Simulated assay, not measured.
Amino acid sequence: MSARANILQRLRAAPQATSPLPPDVPAFHAACHAGLAAGTRAARIALFCEKMAFWHGEVVRVTRANWPQTLRELCVTKGVRSLLHGEPHTAALRAAGIGGLKPYDRPVDAWKKELFEDTDASLTSTRGGIAETGTLIIWPDVDEPRLMSLVPPIHFALLDADQLYDDLFGAMREQRWSSGMPTNALLVSGPSKTADIQVTLAYGAHGPKELVVLMLVNEEELK
Rank of each mutant, 00 (worst) to 15 (best):
Pro103Asp: 06
Val76Ile: 14
Ser122Cys: 11
Leu11Phe: 06
Arg10Thr: 13
Asp162Thr: 09
Gly204Lys: 00
Met215Leu: 13
Val59Tyr: 00
Ala37Ile: 08
Leu147Lys: 14
Cys32Glu: 14
Pro15Tyr: 05
Lys112Ala: 15
Lys209Gln: 00
Gly86Arg: 05
Lys102His: 15
Ala53Gly: 06
Ile138Ala: 00
Gly39Met: 05
Arg72Phe: 08
Ala34Gln: 13
Ala195Arg: 05
Asp118His: 11
Arg44His: 12
Pro182Asn: 03
Val212Asp: 08
Gly97Glu: 01
Ala53Ile: 07
His155Gly: 06
Ser192Thr: 10
Thr119Ser: 00
Ala121Leu: 07
Ser178His: 13
Leu11Gly: 07
Ala43Arg: 12
Ala37Val: 09
Leu83Lys: 01
Ile98Pro: 02
Pro153Arg: 07
Trp67Gly: 04
Gln9Pro: 07
Ile98Asp: 06
Glu221Gly: 06
Pro140Phe: 02
Asp196Cys: 02
Leu222Ala: 03
Met52Leu: 14
Ala161Ser: 14
Gly190Tyr: 01
Phe169Pro: 03
Ile138Asn: 00
Asp118Ile: 07
Arg127Tyr: 08
Ala110Tyr: 15
Arg64Gly: 12
Gln163Thr: 08
Leu36Asn: 10
Gly97Ile: 02
Leu123Trp: 13
Ala31Ser: 07
Leu150Pro: 00
Val108Ala: 14
Ala5Pro: 05
Leu201Phe: 11
Val76Tyr: 09
Pro182Phe: 05
Asp24Thr: 12
Ala43Met: 06
